[in-house]
């Protein structure tokens, strides 16, 4: 099979899962390939976009949104996730926030040798923090996004979706 729906993660698919899982706010910092998703989220009236200037800020904002009854999603890149270590510890794990973090997996490849250290340390970082994660590379994997939401709710802990294709929308 070489159909676009199996080789790409379409931004429409990501948005559909956000809506199905009741996301109210997307706390995010753009990475290099999220623009198609940004345009879709911006046009979606049920979502509020909260832009941050450093990824760790997303953690405390998400904790406040959750305490106030909202259901945030954090949308960042793996580089920023690693920068956010103490905020993840204190504001998400320490406050038992059942939030899904969709994390762009910069440097991820199934082929050859991983040369980008952002990818080298991503899963090791998550293992060190004891945060469960699911890899999503194409629309065929997208049901894992809902699995992550359900797990976050059940465990009252953050759960990560590693996005191996970063919603590029190049197949539009």
């Amino acid at each position: 099979m070489n159909d676009a729906s199996t080789v790409a993660l379409n931004p429409e698919t990501v948005l559909t899962h956000m809506k199905q899982n009741g996301v109210t706010d997307v706390v995010w910092l753009p990475d290099s390939e999220t623009n198609w998703l940004y345009l879709l989220m911006k046009a979606e009236p049920s979502l509020r976009l909260i832009g941050v200037t450093r990824e760790g800020h997303a953690c405390s904002i998400a904790a406040g949104l959750h305490a106030g009854g909202h259901r945030p999603l954090i949308l960042i890149q793996n580089t920023g996730m690693m920068e956010s270590g103490d905020s993840i510890r204190g504001w998400l794990l320490g406050m038992n926030v059942p939030v899904v973090l969709m994390v762009g997996y910069r440097g991820w490849t199934r082929h050859g040798v991983t040369t980008d250290t952002a990818a080298t340390y991503t899963e090791r970082f998550l293992m060190a923090f004891g945060i469960n994660y699911y890899l999503v590379e194409s629309d065929a994997d997208a049901p894992r996004i809902t699995v992550a939401f359900e797990e976050a709710q059940r465990t009252q802990r953050p759960v990560v979706v590693l996005v191996g294709d970063e919603y590029h929308g190049f197949n539009r």
Binding site: T24, V52, G56, S60, I61, G64, A67, G68, H70
Partner: peptide
């Protein structure tokens, strides 16, 4: 009241912002 002590330094403003937006 939401006296949280210091979950992680630098985050009080973000937490309060989230709360204000949700309520």
């Amino acid at each position: 009241d939401v006296p949280l002590g210091d979950p992680a330094m630098g985050g009080h403003a973000g937490f309060a912002l989230g709360l204000a937006l949700a309520q």
